[in-house]
């Protein structure tokens, strides 16, 4: 016979009574003071969740709840309940520490290899209309927000660069329809960028910087084509989607400040991936130059020319430039390893 004291919570009101419960041969007796107040069949009672440090209550057939005073009290049951198993898992330190280690390893491995692989496959699987809409919207947004202004390059210069661009595409056996070149004026200096739909944007100052030696500009264009050929823009977008979603799901419980500080750590992961992509595009540029029978130093010369501008420009620009791109000296050296 089991006898245990606890609280009896009535089903119909907020009343709570101090009672003694006894269980004998499958019958529960509830006694308050000396009088037996109620009697139930144990098999029709429901045992509630077991939680660490919380006494396990049972719901009686009349809807009332009995909660024992003793925390460790175990209700006799035919089979082990899920919450009891959980309760055991949750109280073992070595198991918990092993799970923490496994958790960290899983997250690390997933970010390190799972995310890039997954984004590569999704990028291949997505219809090309997605890239098209995405590229058009990005350009429109950049124009509308006046990040870019209309190019002020003279028509003759534009045509000269465009002719070289067409030749590059033809020589590399790339279809002209998948790519387009656009000129824009940008206040922050020489730059070129690739959009998802195959558009390459060249800033006026980049053309002016390399006007003396347009072979350098060709090499930069090949680097941008490398981004497009590898579907980098789409991959980056997919990657951000995965990381942001996971981050919200896992850390969504945190309050504002902690979440935003940890969130800025997420952007560091993004920068690391961005550097990998730059390296891939560099490799593409070097390889294409080689295939076209051009000297590979065209690209490293272009990087050197860019480096000079950004070093004169002051430290902050330099710093920002290096964070999303690999170290420029490393990129220049990469050629000699090929």
């Amino acid at each position: 016979m089991i006898q245990i004291s606890g609280l009896y919570q009535s089903a119909t009101s907020s009343r709570v009574d101090e009672v003694v419960l006894s269980l004998k041969e499958g019958v529960i007796l509830i006694r308050s003071g000396d009088a037996i107040s109620e009697q139930f069949n144990y098999s029709s009672c429901k045992i509630n969740s077991t939680l660490p440090g919380v006494p396990t209550s049972i719901t009686l057939p009349n809807g009332a709840v009995f909660t024992p005073h003793t925390t460790g009290f175990k209700w006799p049951a035919k089979k082990q309940r899920w919450s009891e198993l959980l309760n055991q898992l949750e109280s073992k330190w070595h198991l918990v520490l092993a799970s923490v280690a496994a958790l960290i390893l899983c997250v690390f491995l997933f970010i390190q290899s799972g995310v890039p692989l997954l984004s590569k496959y999704i990028a291949l699987w997505l219809p090309s209309s997605v890239s098209e809409v995405m590229g058009k919207q990005t350009l429109l947004a950049l124009d509308k927000l006046h990040v870019f202004e209309v190019s002020s390059l003279e028509q003759r210069k534009q045509e000269e660069v465009r002719a070289r661009w067409d030749r590059l595409l033809a020589q590399s056996d790339l279809s002209i329809t998948g790519y387009s070149l656009r000129f824009r004026s940008w206040s922050n200096g020489p730059n070129a960028l690739a959009l998802a739909d195959g558009t390459v944007i060249v800033t006026d100052s980049l053309v002016k910087l390399m006007a003396e030696d347009l072979r350098q500009l060709d090499a930069i264009l090949l680097h941008e084509i490398g981004h497009i050929e590898n579907r980098h823009v789409l991959q980056a977008a997919i990657r951000s989607t995965i990381i942001t979603t996971l981050y919200t799901l896992i850390l969504g419980d945190l309050d504002g400040i902690a979440e935003s500080i940890l969130g800025s750590g997420v952007s560091l992961i993004d920068l690391a991936f961005s550097r990998d992509m730059e390296r891939e595009a560099d490799e593409y540029a070097y390889q294409s130059l080689k295939n076209l029978g051009r000297p590979m130093y065209d690209f490293s010369d272009a990087l050197k020319t860019l480096k000079e501008v950004y070093e004169v420009d002051g430290e902050s620009d330099h710093w920002q430039y290096l964070s999303s791109h690999p170290d420029i000296d490393q990129r220049i050296q990469a050629q000699s390893e090929d």
Binding site: G53, L86, E90, K92, L103, C106
Partner: peptide
């Protein structure tokens, strides 16, 4: 004690690809 409980439920949530997270929240 809560840390242990939370970790076990987090691991179960991840192993179940997030489905268990609803049960974890209740627990």
């Amino acid at each position: 004690q809560y840390f242990k409980l939370w970790v076990v439920n987090m691991v179960l949530s991840i192993l179940s690809l997030g489905i268990y997270s609803a049960w974890a929240k209740v627990r």
